[in-house]
């Protein structure tokens, strides 16, 4: 028991090592929140381009670019994308690594959000587009006021899940020496040479956040169902 207490002390208390975890958590949350924003923005834009092309045959060039973006991003691991952005796109530039992380994970998430949103748009009955058009609403207005609000409601749970996935994926940020939550645990591990406590602590923190978010998503879903019933 004494030995365990000593390990607890060495892992978290000595030299304020717990700060590696709290600071890491902060970095992880900052990256996740801003990456989600970039991802949503990018995802919605790409999805609208793709859906518009599917429905009307317009925006050929934008659709082509979007397709390349989706193929490349979904066809390569996020860690490789992160390294490419850090060492190739921003080669020889001193750049804030948190920003690099946000950018990499945002661009990555955008591709997944785009496909979620597109499926949401495509799931809306064609009659809704026609009803909008018959009232004189043009395509962008119909999309914005009629289609997207309905699609958004349908895909909200999937979008929330994407946020949760993103939060966990940011754990590879340590590869560009970003001190996120996972890296925080690794740093403690590298000074105490003791794996159990730091890893379990890191896992627990992720778990608590994810479970918390999931229960929020669950609540949201139930509320949406209620409003569906009227």
């Amino acid at each position: 028991m004494d030995e365990f207490a000593q390990k607890l002390y060495d892992t978290f208390i000595l030299d304020d090592r717990w700060k590696y975890l709290t600071n890491g958590l902060c970095t992880t949350l900052i990256i996740t929140v801003f990456a989600v924003m970039i991802g949503m923005l990018l995802g919605f834009l790409v999805a609208i381009v793709r859906a518009t092309h599917d429905k009307t045959g317009k925006l050929k060039i934008l659709n082509f670019i979007s397709k390349i973006y989706l193929t490349v991003i979904r066809g390569t691991p996020v860690m490789v994308q992160l390294l490419i952005i850090y060492y190739i796109i921003f080669a020889s530039v001193r750049i804030d690594k948190t920003f690099v992380g946000i950018l990499a994970f945002g661009i990555n998430s955008g591709a997944y959000v785009a496909e979620i949103v597109r499926s949401g748009i495509m799931s809306i009955d064609q009659g809704q587009f026609e009803a909008g058009a018959s009232l004189g609403l043009n395509y962008p207005k119909t999309m914005l006021f009629i289609i997207l609000p309905q699609a958004f409601k349908n895909i909200l749970p999937a979008l929330a899940n994407e946020c949760i996935v993103l939060l966990k994926e940011t754990s590879v940020a340590g590869y560009i020496a970003l001190e996120d939550l996972t890296k925080g645990g690794d740093i403690i591990r590298s000074v105490t040479y003791e794996a159990f406590l730091p890893l379990i602590a890191v896992a627990l923190i992720y778990l608590i956040i994810v479970v918390g978010l999931s229960s929020l998503v669950g609540k949201l879903e139930r509320r949406l169902k209620k409003s569906d019933r009227g």
Binding site: I61, F64, I89, F90, A91, S92
Partner: peptide, 26 residues
């Protein structure tokens, strides 16, 4: 044709961005 031109432009832009950094600070 326009497609190819656009992609070529895009790639050039990316290379320019990367090339911007070739002057390494002292």
């Amino acid at each position: 044709m326009r497609k190819t031109a656009f992609v070529a432009g895009l790639l050039t832009a990316v290379f320019c961005i990367s090339a911007c950094g070739t002057s390494v600070p002292k």
